[in-house]
Structure formats: structure tokens, C-alpha cells
Write a protein that binds this DNA or RNA. Structure first.
Lengths: 354, 354
DNA sequence: ATAGGCAGTTTAAACGATTAAATTATTTAT
DNA sequence: ATAAATAATTTAATCGTTTAAACTGCCTAT
């Protein structure tokens, strides 16, 4: 790369000190600088196409105007949509975003954070994996500003912005029950993550409140690094056998994606043979033969809010903000009450088997 | 943030100069450093959890081990998948990725590049928008290493890695014709971008070679910042009227997404009423009632190759690499030859109307 | 006349690393 | 014993900025 022009170059051309050039270009000490010199400096800066070296600036000011974003996988639509919102919000404040994918692996997340922090990011937006808690405490001790996104740890007093998972799933389950479904399967993750387990709690509580005994076989908990085939297997289990369900709730877009694919392959009619609700939206749902009822996460709000909180915290480490946002239940055809037909008599077996 | 330990801190504790600490921790002058001192330095560094300040290092070495990625929109699955591959490849070489979305707007792309370059990224991976050429030439003059991804300008001698668009579309069209479809619609973008126009050329040439006269109404060219409704309208036009097509080729995943949504809404049977081919793959296609034939871009290769070329160029500005990679045609049910049935006699009207 | 004030500008240190060159200490050869 | 060679370490400049403090004229008030 050819050398870029520095303050020194401008100073030399104009015949002043670099300090003065710096003052002028940063509009400091405005009233104490000669008008003509200021103008000349600005003119020369423009002519030489001066671009400040942020690295040098950062070294001195201890600020990089850069934030780090750590998600599980940037190629996941949830993550990339969020990334885009965060990028836009950061840009509004002249911040730039460094990113990395943790693959849900704590040690990879840790390595990422170190890399980002060594590059002196001013703060972090983190979608934490299971087992991240200890390291987050470490971050707090170091005084690194950060905001958790989508997930948080109830025992950790930190900023976070997340969906009210319990409430969202509770709402979805209630809707299914109100629509006449009673044998409700759920495909979710098996993990120690509080927010994910809140989804299970929402499901179980709503069933209980409606006097439905949850069957063990209805709840499919899969590892967080699940493969598509496992999800398909879970769906197979749910829709066959004497204890088969009449509705399935997918706890994430990845689960729904593979689940719907399987339902598609099995040529199951939705909602006649099985109703479906998903958490997260996905453009993909539009391609399914039936509109999919889903819980719409307030992504824009999550992204903007978390970014703003982070930038606030960077400015002055004040209070802790914790936000549990409401999800909106978007009702589509996949949970329409089933109308009885001769070939498909509506018989809800929930209370009568065994 | 609490102050991190610096070379100076270590030097003070051990009672040596910072230079020596630097030499030890970077394994320089290995044979000329006392064994015990070296060990002690390493020990103290570990104890104080020393993390080098990359900013300071960068200022001195003029290297940040950071590359910038500029795509049209990081939330687009094509971009985010690529981003993930690039991230992984960069990580292998201890590079970190800064990203930004240009929204296909040249001035936004320019602003982004300036921001990234001021942060002294070592090089750029760019998916350029229309009108970016002048600015890329500027980059070359500045000696900024960069590699274009997915798109390039034939008049610009620069590194690039892209799909062989002409060949890919040609292959897809030939496949449609071989499968018995003759009235082939195409939904693509209207733009000055060479690579996009290569898609149109592939389509028109393949038609011509097979003795099919392309009809103007078969080719739908939409603005690059197209809205979903426009795409749906284009599909409506293609599948209705006396000149209606029997197959549609979508020139990108965004186009296919909305197009298939519309086909879904219209309850058109694929491929009986209209065959479909798409460029780019998408998980979403799995949710469609029929498997979608598509051109699979060698994403992994594109991402890895472009990153490697960039890192090579950063190391020593040598030659120019230009790669046009082959797309693979993945044939699914959406282009199965239509079998005649009483209710759906196979009559291809291509040559007989008007 | 002369101290004080003000406008305009420069000096110089600092941020945290790297690294060529200089320095000091030790060993070896004569 | 002494010069030369080698080993181990330090000095000091540098990267491109920022910014407190010092400086230089000039003007004004006493």
C-alpha cells in the first residue's frame, strides 16, 4: 500500500506543527485558532485526501469505535438478520462491527473474545453458549462492557436483551389448545441454558393449566449442535404410534426448518394431520404449503436496544439494563381448528388413551 | 475497563527492558537470550495474563491481521453463508473479519470502505455493486489488496472469484429444454453488472442454439433493489395469458424465494403447470411441495479461495488471480419431464403460437 | 514602562508495541 | 595480558495521533 498522508504531511505543507493540524481537524480550541491558518489546513487536508489513522488514534485515546459481535453461527438467518440490524444501529453512531461465530463452543467463544479484545473493541454483543457464565464473570472483572443477546443467565447481573421465552411459548401453547389441539408435541434443545429451558417451562405450565397431562414422549429434547437427521427422527417419533401428537411446537427456526422438511417429505397435511407452531420467523415458511403460525421475535428491537445499551455502557458505565421482550404470535393456517370431514373425523384422543 | 498488563509491566516485574520481553514473547533472537531470563519472562507473562495490544502492534508493524468484508446485505443467506466460510478461513490464519453491508449503493460502499481502511484493515473482500468500478480503480492506485467476490468487471484487471454465470445458466436452460420445456421464462435483474448480464446471455444463447425464439415477455428484468411485490407481479405475468411459460428460471435466491411464494399462493403445481429452476441454493426450498432444481454455487470454494488469494496478496503483491468457477446443476422434481395425463395433456405450444 | 491578559501556536510526552544499533559482559585465542 | 569474538541485554527511535502545558508576540490598562 502506498503511504497515506498523515498529520505530519499536512503540517509540513502548511508550515505549522502537527498539533495545530490536529486541533483544527478535530474542531478543538476553535476560538483560539487563526481563521486563515485553519482554512489553509482544511484545504490542504482535503487536497491530500487526509484520512485519520484510526489505529494511531485508538492507541492514544483507548477507543476504537468498534464493537465485537459474537453469535453461534453468522450463517444462521436469526444471527445474520440480527447482525444486519446491529450493523445499521452501530453505523448510526459511527461504530464498526467485528464478528465471530462460536459454534456454541465455550472455548471457541473464549478464543474469539480474546481476539476481539486484543484488537481493543470497545465492547461486546454476545449471544452466549452454555457454560459461558464463568467467562462472562471474568469479563465483568476486567470491566469490559458487554450486553447479552437472546440468552442470559439468571444468576448473572449483566445487561441483556432477550425474548420472554416463557411467555411466548405459553401464549403459543394456549393458542393451540384454544384451537382444539390437545396432544401437543414439542421439539426443543436439551441444554443448561436458562432461556431455552424457559421454553420448556412455558410449554409444560400451559399444558398443566389446561388440565392436560404432558406425556414424556411428546417432548423431544435434542443436543444444541443437532444434525438435521436427528430432528427428522424426532418428528417421525412424534407423528407415529398410538401416542402420536396432533400438533408440534418447534422451539427454533433450525428445528422448524428440518421438521417442516420432514413433514413435507411425509406428505403430512398441515394442520389436518398435524398442526405446527414455530419460534422465530423465516422467509422459508412462505414456501410451505400452509402458512406457518409462529412467534415473531422483535428482532429490530432486540438488535437496536442491545446496541444502544452497549454504546451507553461504553460511554459511562452506569446501570444494568435487563429486557425481556414480548414475542408476537402470528397466527396462520398451520394452526387452524381442524374441521371434521368424513375421511378425517376430528377425534382428539388426548384424554382417552391409556 | 481496568488497565491490561503491558510489556512494560512484565519488564518491571522481571527487572529487564521491554525490548527483551518483546524478543522473548515473539521468539525472536532465540539463540541469543539467556534461558533463565526467558523462562522467567514467560512465567510472569502468564501470571499477569499478558495479552498483546494489537492496536499498538499494528501501529508499529502496519498490519492489523484484520480483513474487511463488504457484501450487499449480510442478512441475505448467500452473504451470510459466505461470511461464515470466510470467517473460518480467515481464522485459520489468525485473521479477524470486519464487515459491512452496502445495500447495493455505491456511496454506501465507499463510505464503508473508508471506515474499514481507516481502521487499517490489511485488505478487502468485496461483493461490488453497480458503479463501483471507478472506486475500485482508486483502491488499486492506493495499493489496497482486494479480491472481488461473486461479481467482477471485465474491464478491470483485478483478483476475483465468481461463478461462471454464463455457463451455469446455459446448462440450466439446456436441461429444461432437454426435459421437454420450451416456453422458458426468466426472472432476473436489470443492471449494468457484467456477471448478472452473463446470466441473461446464457439464457438467450441457449434458447437460440435450440432453435427457440425468445419472446420479450418471457424475460422479466427487475431493479436490483426489487420489492417482493414486483417479483410476484412478474410471476403472475409469466404464468398467465396466451404466451404463458411452462418453466421459470429465477436468477437469484431472493427472486426464487418470492417467486415460489407466489407460485405457492396461486396453487400452481410444479412442475406440471410450471417447472422451476433457481440459481443459488436455499434451505427454504426444502419446504416447497416439490424439490427445486437449482444451480449450486461452490460457496465453500468461493469463500476459501477468495480469502486465500487476499491473504496471499497481502503477503506479497504478486500476480492477479481470476477464477470463474463452475456451478453444479442439482436436478430435482421441479424440472421432471411432464407426463401426459388426460387432464393435463402435454402440449408444448412454443413454436406454434402467433 | 511594565505587568497582565489574550490570541495563536509549538513543545513534548504519551499510548504500547517493534527492532536496528549500541552497549556491556563474558569467553576464547594468541 | 590483551585483542577479538561472542553472548546477553539495553537504548532509543519509531509508528500517527492527542493534549496538557509552555511559549511568543501583541495589546491593554495602570
Amino acid at each position: 500500500m502506498t503511504k497515506k498522508t498523515s498529520l505530519k504531511d499536512i503540517a509540513q505543507v502548511v508550515g505549522v506543527s502537527t498539533a495545530l493540524v490536529s486541533y483544527v481537524l478535530n474542531n478543538k480550541k476553535e476560538n483560539r485558532i487563526g481563521k486563515e491558518v485553519a482554512q489553509k489546513i482544511r484545504k490542504v487536508a482535503r487536497e491530500l485526501n487526509y484520512q485519520p489513522n484510526q489505529i494511531a488514534k485508538s492507541l492514544k485515546t483507548n477507543k476504537t469505535d468498534t464493537i465485537g459481535l459474537i453469535v453461534a453461527d453468522i450463517s444462521n438467518p436469526f444471527s445474520s438478520s440480527l447482525a444486519r440490524i446491529i450493523e445499521d444501529e452501530a453505523d448510526k453512531h459511527n461504530y464498526t462491527v467485528l464478528f465471530g461465530s462460536s459454534d456454541e463452543k465455550p472455548q471457541k467463544a473464549q478464543k474469539l473474545m480474546t481476539a476481539l479484545l486484543n484488537r481493543q473493541v470497545d465492547g461486546l454483543l454476545i449471544c452466549p453458549s452454555e457454560g459461558a457464565e464463568a467467562h462472562l464473570i471474568e469479563l465483568q472483572h476486567q470491566g469490559v462492557p458487554f450486553v447479552l443477546i437472546d440468552r442470559y443467565f439468571p444468576g448473572l447481573k449483566s445487561n441483556y436483551v432477550a425474548l420472554d421465552n416463557y411467555g411466548a411459548i405459553h401464549k403459543a401453547v394456549q393458542h393451540l389448545i384454544d384451537s382444539g389441539f390437545r396432544r401437543l408435541g414439542m421439539v426443543t434443545f436439551r441444554t443448561g441454558l436458562f432461556t431455552i429451558n424457559e421454553r420448556r417451562r412455558g410449554y409444560l405450565t400451559a399444558l398443566k393449566e389446561n388440565g392436560i397431562t404432558a406425556r414424556k414422549s411428546w417432548l423431544k429434547e435434542l443436543p444444541i449442535d443437532v444434525q438435521g437427521a436427528d430432528i427428522e427422527k424426532a418428528v417421525d417419533d412424534l407423528v407415529t404410534g398410538p401416542q402420536r401428537v396432533d400438533a408440534i411446537l418447534f422451539a427454533s427456526n433450525v428445528l422448524a426448518m428440518h421438521g417442516l422438511k420432514r413433514i413435507n417429505t411425509l406428505r403430512l397435511n398441515v394442520p389436518d394431520e398435524v398442526a405446527v407452531v414455530s419460534i422465530d420467523e423465516a422467509e422459508a415458511y412462505n414456501l410451505f404449503h400452509t402458512g406457518i403460525t409462529y412467534i415473531k421475535q422483535p428482532l429490530l428491537e432486540i438488535g437496536q436496544m442491545s446496541t444502544r445499551i452497549l454504546l451507553e455502557t461504553i460511554k459511562k458505565n452506569n446501570s444494568t439494563t435487563q429486557a425481556n421482550l414480548d414475542g408476537e404470535l402470528i397466527i396462520q393456517a398451520s394452526t387452524q381448528p381442524v374441521v371434521a370431514t368424513p375421511s378425517n373425523p376430528v377425534v382428539h384422543l388426548a384424554e382417552q388413551d391409556e
